[in-house]
Design a binder for these strands. Structure first.
Lengths: 174, 174
DNA sequence: TTCTTTTCGTCAAGCACGTTGTCGATTCTA
DNA sequence: TAGAATCGACAACGTGCTTGACGAAAAGAA
């Protein structure tokens, strides 16, 4: 890494001016632009479908609450999101305020409070899944199904598995 | 958009179980994972090279300060970053504390304070560029140059130009 | 020129969202 | 059963953004 001589070799070797490689700093910007585009369009469409209050951070939290077959505890939600249990508690508070989640006591453990999605929350999650499907279809139409599949495969190749969690919102603070 | 019937057609039509399309929600996660991987590796390497204090948000700000030929004002930096001038002012304060930028009076306008990169700041920016180049080369090695170029082209196709700014850090609040 | 409007940078207050530390209550374990 | 671990809440705080207000300086119009 950082061997600039080698970089120059690989990047500019025998290239005519018009077909020089794109500068390296564009790659993260392109990836982020793609991510942002999808998330923005998701939330614009969610707002149109009766969920104007959902924010990106809420979406990840809804997913974290809703994924398991059993109801999750606040602490578990925090682990899924990569944040402290206190932060998760506050996020759950907010989702309860907004009517997306509800708490109940765990009959098997008096310390725990179970967090469940309300019908409204399940609706948001189901619509999100459908919208993501539609957005992917739009990309497949614009790019061709093969190119999109290859894009996904390529990203799977270069990203370690641990980059994959729902802790996206927790990351940006870094 | 959101025509679920059409989605099902395109996604699952005539596919054997093994070659079904990847679910739509993975696409944003893959894009974000790629972005995060690059940024994490950039900052890990920057830390090794004498810049342990630079954070992702700082990197974008350094870029915003350093891009023009002339020194920028705080307000202009804010515009580049997509945040208010007050927020930009605080970010510049922090960069000044860390030794990456310095303020000076504008001889032509007593209201303005010019923001300039220090040699330390220019060093960070130059090293960032080199590291991004090296990271892109690593991806090119892992994927093949053609696939990487196609990935970049594909992302350029599906992302609107206005998603491209340095206002990445300002975005997550949405 | 003088008056008005705009712009620059700062101060202040507040919000969103994360952190660490502490605590009582409850459960697990040795 | 005594001690350790865990759950969720409360408090205090940090960061980074927002809006609103303000004085000083510049720009535009009379």
């Amino acid at each position: 890494m950082l061997d600039e001589k080698k970089v120059k070799q690989v990047v500019d070797f025998d290239k005519a001016p018009g077909e020089r490689e794109t500068p390296g700093f564009e790659l993260p910007l392109l990836l982020f632009a793609g991510f942002r585009t999808l998330i923005d369009e998701l939330h614009a469409e969610l707002a149109r479908q009766g969920h104007p209050d959902v924010r990106p951070a809420h979406g990840f939290a809804l997913q974290a609450i809703g994924l398991g077959p059993d109801a999750a505890s606040t602490t578990e939600v925090g682990r899924s999101l990569g944040v402290s249990k206190q932060a998760a508690g506050k996020t759950v508070d907010r989702l309860v305020e907004l009517g997306y989640a509800e708490r109940s006591d765990d009959p098997a453990d008096a310390r725990r409070k179970l967090v469940r999605l309300t019908p409204h929350g399940r609706d948001a999650l189901a619509r999100s899944a459908a919208i993501f499907e539609a957005l992917r279809t739009r990309w497949a139409t614009a790019l061709g199904g093969d190119r999109l599949r290859d894009l996904e495969d390529a990203l799977r190749t270069v990203t370690p598995a641990e980059s994959f969690g729902l802790d996206a919102s927790a990351w940006l603070r870094g």
